[in-house]
Amino acid sequence: MEPKNQISTKAVQVWRVSGFLFSLIEWGIAAGAVVLSALFDIPKWIPVVLFILAAAGTVIAVFVLPSLRIKHWRYEVREKEIEIQKGLFVIRRTLVPMVRVQHVDTRQGPILAKYGLSSVEISTAATTHEIPALDYMEAEQLRKYISLMAVVEDDDV
């Protein structure tokens, strides 16, 4: 009984791009270490190790994690609740009742925009839940549907 819907398969590419961009930081650090070791008396193995780490980090962030991440990513928006399932090794399944939803945001950064995707952020009074990488139209529809369904029925908060 998993939640029904999968996020866009393009999410893998988005995560690859963002993973790559993120790993540039590691390369930057490694490059910095080379410069420093040329200027100061620093053991040569330090930049070497940093380069190996950066390479490993890039491989993991670009080739390993994205496909693992999408494997368990499921969501389902039902009449009364939203269910989100995600995780790599620990699978986390979160239930958010519709009536607890405070507001819904759609977000589109430059990478998501390039792939015509958009992410939906669902906020309750205490928590925020993100459904990343949905087709732009799908995200808008979902957004509308949730705000329509999530009419608070009591004055709890």
Binding site: F89, V90, I91, R93, V96, D156
Partner: peptide, 16 residues
């Protein structure tokens, strides 16, 4: 129940 904002159920590989 009406005050629970979200309920999460986790299961790791070993828990499964």
């Amino acid at each position: 129940r009406s005050k629970i904002q979200a309920l999460r159920i986790d299961s790791s590989f070993f828990q499964q």
